[in-house]
Amino acid sequence: MSAPLSRGLAQRVVDQVSPALAHNINVMDRAGIVIASRDPARIGTLHRGAREAAATGVPAVIHAGEEPAGARPGVNLPLTLDGDIVGVVGLTGDPATVLPVAQILVLTIGLLLTRERELDASARREARDRDLLSRLVNSDLDARAVGASLAGDAPRLAAPWRLAAVVDAPSPASAESRLPRNLLDITRRLESTGRFRWASFQGALWVLGRATEHDDDALAAAGMAAAAASGTTSNASATLLVRGDACPDIETLGGSAKTLGALLARPRFLPTGSPVLRSGELTAELAVACMPAETARHLASHVSGLSAVHRATVNAYLDSGRSISETARALFAHRNTVIQRLDRIAETTGLDPRDPRQSLTLRLGLVAARGWAT
């Protein structure tokens, strides 16, 4: 059986359709009590004709001179939602005049109520998931409450879990995360799968799902397909998906959430060469994001004298595991060219990329120089 018709919902719908009609509109519940009306004095009164219409499913037509107590001339038609009679819609006036209007009106109100209920359900889902996800990202972990939500609310999510965030690529002009421009399309695609929880806050779309290859691919596909629909495929990194670790328990999920929160708090440190980033590969970015400003600026000063070519060489060299051959292939350069560039980098910065400890300083310096907001 459908849920009872709420007064607030019924009144919102009456307020939407009333301006287009010259007649008074009433909405009664299944007991015949007026719960919404253009005439506030009618709310809360009993309409016996409506009670009969709700009980029998037969329209109640009231002519002048035949009005029972608490009623006025007009027509009262049963209101059906999801196959159940949930109330009655009444239109005051000469039945011969208002019946055709009432027949259209009850269909219109039914559609509006259905839509309003969907919006209410969506708002409740959004509020519920925002509370869950924002607590994971921002608050002390309440493992019991998180576990109850994951097991008790739809969609139910069993371990292992993965939290991810979707944002627009960081801009040099802004130090804050920005919601993806294709947010609505992404959430529609997520909703169609029935396998994710999501909420928007702090400039990001946060998405929680199971850490399975199937769900990982579904989330990535939602972001990329939405990017294509919005015409951003010319820039593969216009929308970034930052993916957390697979989490076998709630405590690990809480740690992953805090890590993502720290990364997204300083999005300008994020690399933009790939549309999908993994938090486990962003250790340098996380370290710089958590540093005091003075420390990060000092690190950035180590690489301030490097050209764009030399910075690209350091990154490629470190990404390759300090392999000169792999770096040469990645940069389409000769081995000797790579060696000469590494020598020049060491001379310019005083830090040799071939030394593991010094290469770490270079890596952090490059990240700091990428986006520290001065």
Rank of each mutant, 00 (worst) to 15 (best):
L21A: 11
V106G: 06
G321S: 07
A257L: 04
G305M: 08
T349I: 03
A20V: 10
L331D: 03
R128C: 02
L306S: 13
V338R: 03
A236P: 13
L163R: 06
D216R: 14
G74L: 11
A373N: 11
R357A: 14
V106F: 01
N315Y: 00
T92V: 15
V101A: 10
S323R: 14
R178I: 02
T283F: 02
R135A: 15
A257T: 05
S274I: 00
S359L: 06
S274H: 14
T80N: 08
A69V: 12
A165R: 04
I104C: 08
E67P: 08
T349S: 11
R125L: 12
A53F: 09
A284Q: 11
S234D: 13
S2G: 00
S279C: 13
D29K: 02
S359R: 08
P172E: 02
S171H: 10
L46A: 12
G280I: 03
A148R: 13
L366E: 04
A3D: 14
R297Y: 08
R197E: 09
W206T: 03
W372T: 15
I250W: 08
S192Y: 06
A262V: 12
P40C: 00
I339K: 12
N182R: 00
V288T: 04
A60K: 14
A236I: 15
A54G: 10
V288R: 07
E116W: 11
L150T: 05
L219C: 06
A145C: 01
N182W: 01
L318E: 10
A262G: 05
P95S: 08
D84V: 00
A308H: 06
A31Q: 15
D131T: 15
G305N: 11
A60E: 14
P353K: 06
N336D: 15
A330D: 12
A312K: 12
D153W: 07
I33E: 13
T114R: 15
P356I: 02
R162D: 01
L240R: 03
L264W: 07
R266Y: 11
G231R: 11
E347Q: 12
E191W: 09
L190K: 04
S230I: 00
D355M: 10
V167T: 15
Q11W: 09
A143M: 07
D249K: 02
P271C: 04
T56I: 10
D355Y: 02
A71D: 14
G90N: 09
S177I: 00
P170T: 08
E281V: 01
S171K: 05
I85D: 02
E118D: 13
S2M: 07
G93V: 01
R130K: 13
A69L: 13
A54P: 11
A204N: 11
H298Q: 14
D15M: 05
L318C: 05
A218G: 04
A211Q: 08
R128V: 01
R188C: 02
